[in-house]
């Protein structure tokens, strides 16, 4: 089946204080019908710029894109009726009610009065807005506000929905609630393309992920596939305070064939281990034999953070700090 979105060599630079900033440096993307595609990257990576180009808000400097069977640059009107776009800020009218917002949106997508009213009522039910539907949006909580934003993007039953950082600023409870909404949309057959700078969110929420950094896609695949590329797990041993013993432990652990690297930090010992799960009992036995006292032990499997680290050479959150400086 033809992918719902196919992007080739898409690029965009801005002029910032007279200097060109390459926000998106010629990226290729392919999204299949019915999947949740997560776009992970630190602030400033170029995620919003990409989404704005794909939703016809911003003219690319180069490259091409086919969306839902139409050429984005030549037939933007065709594309617009088939996509929904929810920006980072949402875009609901705060001085109007949810019902008025949804009704106007339905009309703007060409529905006549009666069908627009019916669709509005259906969206209010589907997004659990009925209690607040006739209150002004200014009075909404963050979670209610976000649900309305997503509902606005879905009024016209788009085939592909773009969500730009849908959970940024939400508390954990509302975050998981929004995840459920996104899964529900996928179950209804909608393809969802969302951006996030939360590693765990990209991992949990998406069927496939692209990792973006400084305008480039550095890795792409299923979350588990990407993590498999990082071959080592991390084991952190918290040892009884005794410098000499820690040094001794480090000595013989480094000698083990499956330990690729051992790093000591005071009484903590960090091991990079292939197949950590199965090696853990062995390591415990060895420590016991050498009579080295152990206080804590942690095994962590690779995360998308590690993937990011491996592909870019810097940590996801450092990348943000770099840009905020």
């Amino acid at each position: 089946m033809e992918p719902i979105l196919e992007v080739k060599k898409l690029r965009k630079s801005y002029l910032s204080k007279g200097k060109p900033v390459e926000a998106v440096k010629g990226i290729d993307l392919e999204i299949r019908r019915g999947e949740i595609f997560g776009f992970l990257g630190p602030n400033g990576a170029g995620k919003t710029t990409t989404l704005r180009m794909l939703s016809s808000l911003l003219v690319p400097d180069g490259g091409e894109a086919r969306i839902a069977g139409y050429d984005l640059l030549r037939q933007p009107e065709k594309v617009r009726t088939r996509i929904g776009y929810v920006s980072q800020t949402g875009g609901s009218d705060r001085m109007a009610t949810a019902r008025e917002n949804l009704y106007l949106q339905a009309r703007l997508y060409g529905m006549a009065g009666k069908s627009a009213r019916e669709r509005t009522a259906a969206m209010i039910m589907a997004f659990d807005l009925d209690e607040i539907a006739d209150r002004k949006v200014v009075t909404y909580s963050g979670g209610q506000h976000r649900r309305l934003d997503v509902a606005l993007g879905m009024v016209h039953k788009p085939e592909l929905l773009f969500l730009d950082e849908p959970t940024t600023g939400l508390d954990p409870q509302n975050r998981s609630r929004l995840w459920k909404e996104v899964w529900r949309l996928r179950d209804e057959g909608v393809t969802v393309f969302l951006t996030t700078h939360y590693m765990d969110e990209a991992d949990m929420l998406s069927d496939r992920v692209a990792i973006m950094d400084r305008g480039e896609i550095v890795a792409e695949g299923t979350p588990s596939g990407l993590k498999k590329r990082i071959e080592e797990d991390t084991i952190i041993l918290g040892l009884e305070k005794n410098g000499a013993v820690t040094e001794q432990a480090k000595q013989f652990l480094t000698g083990l064939p499956f330990v690729r690297e051992a790093v000591q930090n005071r009484d903590k010992l960090l091991l990079m281990v292939r197949d950590g799960e199965t090696r853990l009992p062995q390591i415990l036995r060895l420590l016991d034999q050498h009579q080295i006292g152990l206080k804590t032990i942690t095994l962590s499997q690779p995360t998308l953070d590690d993937v990011f680290m491996k592909e870019t050479g810097h940590a996801l959150h450092d990348a943000e700090k770099d840009l905020n400086r």
Binding site: S56, R80, Y85, G91, G110
Partner: peptide
């Protein structure tokens, strides 16, 4: 513009 309303209108087919 800041609240994103204009952007929302600009992606509709109007």
């Amino acid at each position: 513009i800041r609240s994103g309303i204009i952007e929302r209108f600009r992606v509709t087919p109007t």
